[in-house]
Amino acid sequence: MSSYLIFAYGGVGLCGIGVFGFILHSHLLRRLIAFNLLGSGTFLILVGLSQSGRGQPDYIPQALVLTGIVVAVAATALALVLIRRWAALTKHATLPEDQGPS
């Protein structure tokens, strides 16, 4: 198995863990981390899979992932702004439907 393919499978694992955590957790910050894991897993699959097909570095998925990372950090920052605003207004770091029957 080429090392490109190994990392593609690693990306698969990251995606699974990310989805698991995203659904399981109700704390918004943990959800954001899980979502970022899912994103990183996707990037790994994208580059790893395409390079394992060719057996050499493939620059187009690499460029796409580079764009993706920058957009992902902007999305994370925006999500954090929203979470902090939400927490400042409601004193909760979870959404109302996750706060239990209290």
Binding site: G11, V12, G13, C15, G16, I17, V19, F20, G21, F22, I23, L24, I45
Partner: peptide, 12 residues
């Protein structure tokens, strides 16, 4: 969550 996680891993 467990079902979705494993589902994603298997499908991918």
């Amino acid at each position: 969550a467990l079902l979705s996680g494993t589902g994603v891993i298997l499908a991918l």
